[in-house]
Structure formats: C-alpha cells, structure tokens
Design a protein around this nucleic acid. Structure first.
Lengths: 300, 300
DNA sequence: TAAAAATACTCCATAGGTATTTTAT
DNA sequence: ATAAAATACCTATGGAGTATTTTTA
C-alpha cells in the first residue's frame, strides 16, 4: 500500500525538526496525531523511521532516506498544484488541434509563435483533417480545437472567426486574364477551374462561386492538395480560386502562379477556431481565437 | 490543499481508460466512488479534468497534464516503497559513521569496498572523533555507527569486534633494538615511549602497557596523530607502540620506521563496530560488523 | 431503451483531537 | 520534577458503498 501524502508530510516535518512536538506544530496537528500517522506509515512500509533517543527521538538512516524521497514527491505535488492553477488562466498540457488542409500550411506558422508566447506550457499536437472527420474528432473529444472554414453547421460547437480570407483568381503568368489588374466574375465564364478532390470544403466553396459565375470545370481533373492544384495552374491547365492566406506561399515569385483580385464581387471564406461548447477551457479557447485573429490582422 | 495519492491514482486511471466505469474497476472501487473523488480533486485544485462527451467522458487537456504529473508522483511513491523494503535487508540512505583517529586512516579503506558491494544504496558519511565525543555523538544519534577500540563501557551500546589488532614496537632502523627479530617487554624498560595527546584511547593503552613494562615516557612530547608520532620515531626521538593495522602505512619501506614483534606477551587492542542497542537496524549493523571482520581477516 | 455518468443517501474506517501514562533527564 | 513521546480513548470527517436519476446515442 502506498503511503498517504499526509504521512509523507509528517515524515518530512519529523526529519526536518527531529522533534515530534515541533514537527506536529509545523503541520498544524497535535503531537499524538503525528505520532499515530508515523506509526501507520511504518506499519505500511515495514520500516522503522524513528528511534527513541534520550527523551526525544531520532530519525533512522532509512527514515532519512525515505524523507528525502518524500520531499521530492511533495515538491512534485506542489508543482502539480501550481500547474493546475496555471490552467485556470492559461492553456497547459497536450492540446490536440485539427486544421483543414487548405488552412494548416498557410495559417498555423503565422499564429503559433504568438500562441506559444501567450501559453508557454502548452504542447500543441497538430493534425490535418478535412472538415467532416475534423468535426467528428472534435465532437468525440479526440481533438480539443479545430481550425476550419465557416459555416459550422453544428450547435455542439462554438467558434471564433480568426480570418476573413478573400479568394483570388490564380493563373499562369501568360494567361489571357493576367494582363488586367482586376478580374470580373463574368471574366472567368469560359475558364477551366481546377478543383480539389471531394471532402475539401474549399472545393465546395469554389464550385458554388463558379456555378454562380457560370464557369466550367473539368470534372476529370482533381488535385489532392492546394499545392498540387497550383502546380497544375502554373502548367497552364486552368485557373483556380486561391485563398489570400495561401498567396505568399503558392503564388510567390518563381512559382509560375500569379493572382488577380476580383473587381466586382469579393468572394471569401471565413476561417474560424472551433471547440465543443461545454469544454471547460472554452473561455481560454475563445481568447485564443481572438489572439489568432489579432495576430493575422496585424500580419495583413 | 495538496491532492491525495488516492485522487492521483483515480486521475491516472481515468486518463488511462478514458472511461469512468473501467477506471473505477481498475482501482477496485465503484464508479460513484471514483467520480466523487475526481470531483473532490477538481474542487481542491480548481480545474475541471473531465468533460461529458456523448454518453461518456473525456479528459481535458489540463487533466491530461495533471495525469502526466500524477504518474511521476505515483512512480516516485512506488520507488519510495521499494526503497523502504530494501531497508529491511540492506542499509540505505545517509549512514553517519564515526571512527577514532587511530583506526580511521588504516581500516576504513580496507573495508569500504566490501561495504559498498553489500549495501549499494548506502551513502557513508565518515567522521573522525576520539572515543569520548564519538560515544556522545553515537548516544545522541548524531552518529549511526562507531568504529573504536574496546572496552566500550556503556550498556547503551552493542558492538561486534572487527579486528584483534596486536601492538608492535616501532623504532628507527638504527635503533639498538632493531637488530633483533623480536623484542621482549623487559627490553623497552629504558626507552622513551612517544605518546599521542590526551583523549586518544591508544595513548591510554600504550601508557598502561608501558607502566607494566616499566618503560619511561617523556610527558613533554606528545603527537597530535599517529602519523606525527611515527615521524618522531623515524627522527630517533623514541619508540612507540604501533597497531599492526597501521604497519602497512606508517612502517612501510622508506618511512624510516621499522617494527618488531614482541617475543613474550602479545599486547593488542580490539577494534569494534558499535551502535545503539535499540537502533532498528541493529541486526544489519551486526551483520555489517561480521562482514568487516571477515574482510579484515582475509586481508591478513 | 440501453449504456454511461451523475446524484442522493447511508455507513464506517480512520484521521484527528483530548486526556493520561510512560520514559528519561 | 519536567520535558517528550507513547498510549488510550473518543469524535467526526470523508472515502466508499448501494440505489436511483439524468443524459444521450
């Protein structure tokens, strides 16, 4: 049987003071109480920790050894308490964060430094999941947080919008639309719009906007990632809608991809941080969402 | 308030199984018992460690962090228990050993390796004290063990003789007695016998033997250590009684000191390991004494 | 409706207290 | 005679049980 924390406290006090009465006073209990618990400890661990010497007691070598170990345990318990108190105002421990693939590579790197600064003792475990499995994992508490695009059609979740992410039109530099500084929605009417494979919310958003604009898309060509799509765009296989957040990475100089803003309507997606409504850390999650939004706003 | 060990066990079980019922079963308690203690823990540390998810529960990030710390604590508690059980058959922890100055430099080095082998997890703190303060410190439990010469005239102590240590006559190589292989007691009648200062039991033993043999000693010359005495012997200032145990160090080639056995009577001192009679580890001390005796016997 | 956890309650083991005795200075 | 710890004995808190309700898939 493991000793009680209380017994370890008494043992440490006894070793520190070498005097039952003073040890008891230091623990705010009476002398017989401490004596009894020390006796109990000895019974459980099978070793004498005290020896009567003169009209006082002495702690045995074995007792001193145990007291040393007990001090380590009490120290660890105090650190546990301190960690718990930190958890009230700060995220701690392993935080499992899921992000959709069209967000993860472009936004996480920008917000993580600020998150680490605000919550130094959190360990982030990052996972890439498409919207549906991400929400399932979030609902099952296999994830603590999800970073995805609105709408989140599930009242088990709360969210905080971290970024309004306008769509740009991405094309090869020699594309016929590339000589204009802006592109109108009507202008993409006859273009082939490349799409991500099924399950990506960005695919659905793109489809919706293109349907509205009357654009074509070749159902046969699908990319497994936005990065792949952009390489197809660079190869002149078509155009695509690119979230602004991906612009720095996917349409920077040398990629063979250029972007143009839309002139008339301004299509965009809302990226949000989501969590289960009843999560005890909900207030911290909400604050974290605002922190991310601030961080992304000042980066723009 | 620090959490109880029991609460930490429950938290770890909960984190391990992710299921209150199974966690309770693993702890051999009922589900409401574990739930109640988890609730208690949450109240004391001020943090929610569980969250209802579907028809089960999930451990929060803060809870996982606390569980990780709890595992460390339980591990340390188990090691404390194991250490305690070791203490039943083996000396552990800081053992404070006092030895008289005419024994410490000559015997400790010979027995320590065997002691370390038999009791690997003991930390020896060695102290040199003359007989009277050594016995006082031993009685006050400021020391656990004493290594000194018999007789030990105090029934608070038990002892085990570790070595019968014959006295040899030490002299300069050109001394008139050095040309004989043995020296008779009568032969030292007119010699100046050099003495240690007051408080050394070896001084008293030497005096007693010399009185009996009728030898002189110059009350004005006293050495602060046996080593000093031997250097005085080498300088031709007189002879002294040297314990055999010190021979290897004090009368080896090049020291300017040679020794001769006595031919008729064989004076000697008994060196013993002593401890307080009621010391809980007394059986181990006794065994240790026998171990030392064996080690010294096979060295001779 | 069935599984899982929370709640309500009862009980008793034990940590803790007071009073006293034993032990050693 | 006094200081210190052990012992005896009583009390009450809280850890653990059973029974039941709530929640949700």
């Amino acid at each position: 049987m493991r000793p009680t924390i209380r017994q370890l406290e008494y043992l440490v006090a006894l070793d520190t003071h070498g005097h039952v009465g003073r040890a008891a006073a230091a623990c705010f209990v009476t002398q017989p109480t401490l004596s009894a618990q020390i006796r109990e400890l000895e019974k459980h661990v099978g070793v004498s920790v005290t020896e009567r010497v003169g009209r006082g007691i002495a702690v045995t070598a074995a007792g001193r050894e145990l007291a040393t170990r007990a001090r380590v345990i009490l120290q660890a318990a105090d650190e546990l308490l301190e960690s718990a108190h930190r958890s009230e105002t700060e995220l701690t421990g392993p935080l499992r964060v899921g992000a959709i693939p069209t967000v993860a590579p472009y936004l996480l790197a920008r917000v993580l430094p600020a998150v680490r600064e605000r919550h130094p003792s959190v360990q982030m475990h990052l996972l890439e999941l498409r919207t549906a499995p991400l929400m399932a994992a979030l609902a099952a508490a296999e994830l603590d947080l999800g970073l995805m695009a609105l709408p989140i059609d599930d009242d088990r979740f709360d969210h905080e919008v971290v970024l309004v992410d306008p769509f740009l039109l991405a094309m090869a530099p020699d594309h016929r639309l590339a000589n204009q500084s802006h592109v109108s929605m009507r202008g993409i009417r006859d273009e082939t719009v490349l799409l991500l494979e099924d399950g990506h919310c960005l695919r659905d958003q793109t489809l919706e906007i293109c349907d509205w604009a009357g654009a074509q898309n070749d159902g046969g060509i699908q990319g497994t990632s936005l990065h792949t799509i952009c390489q197809m765009v660079a190869a002149g296989m078509g155009v695509t809608l690119l979230p602004s957040s991906a612009r720095q990475i996917e349409a920077r100089d040398g990629t063979g991809v250029v972007v143009r803003h839309f002139s008339d309507t301004k299509p965009s997606r809302d990226v949000a941080l989501a969590w289960r409504k009843p999560a005890p850390a909900a207030p911290l999650y909400e604050e974290l969402g605002r922190l991310m939004a601030d961080r992304l706003a000042e980066a723009a």
